[in-house]
């Protein structure tokens, strides 16, 4: 395979750093969210004694720490869900025609854009994590240095697969539709249910069954599981819920995300293979 996808990636990154306002918003927004939402909710939940029955011997996690994992996951979701939007611009007002007329196979565009999405997710998630730790998020508590490195790698592996899945989804959609409005509508339609049917901000254990079913096919849930497992360990309580993860469950979560990324890869690959702009 040629390396032309690196050129597409190079351009993605040029565009990422070139729009200073957008870059600033992309980096500051999740941090702000963590700061305002996290601290507001923490002071609400953590002061309510009924919400926090603790189990002796099990780590009890405060809300800020609990939701930090969720904010990291949601940031990756938003970044990638809207990450394919650039392709729609390229189709209508940009250089998609040039790329499709070149001998570069069109899946290189997909891979380049995918790498771009993953990189952007990494940068944002990394920043939130650091910012969160500064704010008092208690990740990696009692971990040795080596364990911490391993945990961070685990988190990023989850972020990578999840981001790839969503960037392919949005790239595939962008290549199939004509207008900005229709993608935007689709994205808005997708984000809210994805966010609120997941375990990013609260426990799903008291959901009605139908909502639990939705939650269990929601990739966001699996990403959050992965992050919490690596950041908080396999046994903790938060907001009155006892979380116990086994290695098998986490492997399964990863597998689910892999399948999701595989499906969206094919979805995007087909869209690129038949793409034409005239």
């Amino acid at each position: 395979m040629g390396r032309e996808f690196l050129t597409v990636y190079w351009r993605e990154m040029i565009r990422f750093v070139r729009f200073k306002g957008q870059l600033f918003a992309a980096l500051v927004q999740p941090a702000l969210w963590l700061l305002l939402f996290g601290i507001a909710m923490t002071s609400n939940f953590d002061s309510n004694p009924f919400a926090m029955p603790t189990i002796p011997g099990v780590v009890s996690v405060d809300y800020l720490t609990f939701m930090a994992a969720g904010v990291m996951a949601m940031t990756a979701l938003f970044t990638c869900l809207f990450g394919g939007m650039g392709l729609l611009f390229d189709k209508n007002w940009g250089i998609m025609k040039e790329m499709l007329a070149s001998p570069m196979p069109s899946y290189h565009i997909q891979i380049g854009v995918g790498l771009g999405g993953v990189t952007k997710s990494f940068i944002q998630v990394g920043l939130i994590m650091v910012f969160g730790l500064v704010l008092g998020v208690k990740f990696f508590l009692g971990f040795s240095a080596l364990e911490t490195v391993f945990a961070v790698l685990g988190i990023f592996a989850f972020i990578m697969i999840f981001s790839a899945g969503f960037i392919f989804l949005s790239a595939g959609l962008a290549m199939r539709v004509e207008s900005m409005e229709s993608v935007q509508a689709m994205m808005t339609l997708l984000t809210l249910p994805l966010m609120f049917s997941s375990n990013a901000l609260y426990s799903t254990s008291s959901f009605p069954v139908w909502l639990q079913t939705i939650s269990s096919v929601n990739p966001l849930t699996y990403l959050v599981n992965g992050i919490r497992y690596f950041a908080l360990g396999n046994d903790f309580t938060a907001m009155g819920t006892h979380y116990e993860y086994t290695g098998g469950e986490i492997a399964l979560s990863f597998a689910v995300l892999l399948v999701f990324a595989g499906l969206t890869f094919v979805f995007a690959w087909r869209a690129f293979r038949t793409a034409k702009v005239t």
Binding site: G2, E4, L6, T7, V8, W10, R11, I14, R15, R18, F19, D90, W93, G94, I95, K97, E98, M99, S102, P103, M104, H108
Partner: peptide, 24 residues
Amino acid sequence: FQDEVLDRDMTVRETLEFHGRIYS
């Protein structure tokens, strides 16, 4: 092309560089 096919936010040099690279 008949229509303008340029990335408005890439520089002149980058435009040519990008093209040369995707043509290997």
